[in-house]
């Protein structure tokens, strides 16, 4: 048992906590993610077909009946499952688990676009490049040189801003120190106006994200599937003093 716990502890790494009590649903994270990760815009028709390429989306559920009706906003992104359903179905090993970062990575140059992974994802967190989407010049000038520009036929998804993780690690190594809590911030958490998104190292019990993940409001989306998501939601509440 102790060994098992130890192993589990070892395999924990990057995680995210989203506090739905203070998430206002403003969509700043969605735009920030898209601008950071060279996500192409697809236009009205493609959006209407459900082919939008946002790596992150805000799920909005109406609850109650008028006039007590109110929506819940839940940011949904790749949950970076520890036991990910997308990985075993990829025939080309393009969807693989990163042993070092303990996230799911999508290797674009391996992907041949079978879309098995997206069909197997219980969170609908993966999006597919149905076409080559143009970013007309000079607008391509803002493309982030740290992130590959994907082409048609490639599956993509949230990477936990792995370019920032690698950069943070290399930066810390160059300065001869360990990566500290808060060094690495993905674009969504950086932009979030209410600081509802917190990112960090779950292996470190003292990190902010670990502490928050132990909250009694914490839950994981579709936890019963046993995919071991690395994104932890804190339940929102609308009770006074709660």
């Amino acid at each position: 048992m102790a060994e098992l716990l130890k192993e589990q502890e070892e395999t924990q790494k990057w995680g995210m906590v989203i506090d739905m009590d203070i998430c206002s649903g403003c969509q700043a994270c969605v735009t920030a993610c898209s601008m950071e990760n060279n996500v192409p815009f697809v236009g009205e028709d493609e959006m209407a077909y459900g082919r939008g390429l946002q790596w992150m989306r805000i799920r909005r559920y109406w609850e109650g009946e008028y006039p007590e009706v109110t929506p819940t906003h839940q940011p949904m992104l790749c949950q970076q499952c520890g036991s990910a359903p997308c990985e075993p179905v990829c025939p080309t090993f393009a969807s693989v688990h990163s042993q070092e970062e303990q996230i799911n990575v999508q290797v674009y140059n391996r992907c041949i676009g079978t879309r098995y992974c997206a069909n197997n994802c219980p969170f609908s967190a993966r999006v597919f490049n149905w076409f080559d989407y143009e970013t007309p010049a000079p607008m391509n000038s803002y493309l982030n040189p740290d992130v590959s520009v994907r082409r048609r036929g490639i599956m993509e998804k949230c990477t936990f801003c792995v370019q920032r993780i690698v950069h943070g690690r290399q930066q810390a190594a160059a300065e001869g120190r360990e990566v500290e809590d808060g060094d690495i911030v993905p674009a969504c958490a950086q932009a979030c106006p209410t600081d509802a998104i917190v990112f960090g190292d779950l292996s470190d019990p003292e990190s902010k994200v670990s502490k928050m993940s132990r909250s009694d409001r914490a839950f994981k989306e579709l936890e019963e599937l046993g995919t071991q998501p690395k994104v932890i939601y804190l339940k929102g509440g609308k009770s006074y003093g709660g």
Binding site: C26, V30, P138, M139, N144, P145, Q190, D195
Partner: peptide
């Protein structure tokens, strides 16, 4: 490349909204 918030600024303290984030699309608008 990317617009981020200024953490020391008294108004937004490092945060930024969708409109600010897309200001590079105004700059490089064809």
């Amino acid at each position: 490349i990317k617009v981020e918030g200024n953490p020391n600024h008294p108004v937004n303290q490092g945060k930024v909204c969708s409109r600010g984030l897309t200001s590079v699309q105004g700059l490089y608008n064809p």
